[in-house]
Nucleic acid binder design. Structure first.
Lengths: 155, 155
DNA sequence: TTGCGGTTGATATGATATAACATTGCGGGT
DNA sequence: ACCCGCAATGTTATATCATATCAACCGCAA
């Protein structure tokens, strides 16, 4: 079901399934899944790793050079609707592995191959926040390390 | 013991205690706690919120204008020795609340007043990482929300 | 003295992100 | 058909964050 970039799998299927899911969600919610937005999500899904806004911009250039806001606006749309996530540690973006599912995203980032896996995680800060009277609205959880393949290669 | 920026406390004591602790740790470890490095930590400790590298640079300017690498080098020293932390979500830095203690830092960031508290957190990604064969080397955990005072004010 | 490692100073540039404003295209009301 | 409003897009300029590079300095030990 879920896409695990650290292991071999039929990624074309993940790509197609996710795009179809986002198509359906946008139709359902009355969101405009415009060509630029679709193309950006497509690029994120095809890339083996997280893409920076300017990487995306460069790949959109087939249609002629675009200015930075083009990429940032499409990314804002995708992120704010839960179709993509921003990685704060990398200043980069990945397609969401479970669009439509409510989830608290967490990420495993391989520092060697730059691949990123989206993981399920508990809500570890709830206790600390409660003790301090802090109201949590959003959480960033990103682990950096080595994926299985790169750890093997490093031995 | 610990410094809680969301509540009234004698922060001058936190400031002095932390600087003294870092002095001692540097002596013990043979690290050069030079005037610039000390001044940057001092600024971080005095500030009510996280400071960007250029904020620090501007405040160092008493000694005459400095170039960006001056701030980044001092911050690298402080962060890599555990005397300060970088907040990925803000591209900014805070003094460590427990220098010398081994700890996995997590942060509560108030989006209204920009104050930041350092919290203790469990290691929520260990299970997910183990399942994927991923080796964790470092973790970013940052929660954004409202501190008690700002939540009260917002009602 | 000489050389070495670590720190600092300074210039330039690279990388990421947003402000501000003009323009287009589309649906609804008249 | 016309106008209007709204969302999306295009474009220029600029703000913000970060690093590469090389020169100068300083304490220290061979």
């Amino acid at each position: 079901m879920s896409c695990d970039p650290f292991h071999r799998h039929d990624h074309a299927a993940c790509h197609d399934r996710t795009l179809a899911a986002v198509d359906a969600l946008c139709a359902e919610r009355g969101l405009q899944f415009t060509p630029t937005r679709r193309e950006v999500l497509d690029l994120l899904l095809r890339a083996p790793k997280a893409l920076g806004a300017y990487d995306i911009l460069a790949q959109l250039a087939g249609d002629g050079a675009k200015a930075p806001p083009v990429a940032y606006r499409a990314l804002d749309f995708l992120v704010s609707n839960g179709f993509a996530h921003r990685l704060e540690k990398l200043n980069a973006y990945v397609a969401c592995a479970h669009p439509g599912d409510a989830h608290l995203p967490a990420f495993l980032i391989c520092r060697a191959c730059d691949r990123v896996a989206e993981a399920d995680a508990p809500r570890p800060l709830n206790k600390a926040a409660r003790e301090q009277g802090f109201t949590i609205e959003g959480v960033v959880m990103e682990a950096v390390g080595l994926c299985p393949a790169c750890a093997d290669a490093a031995e």
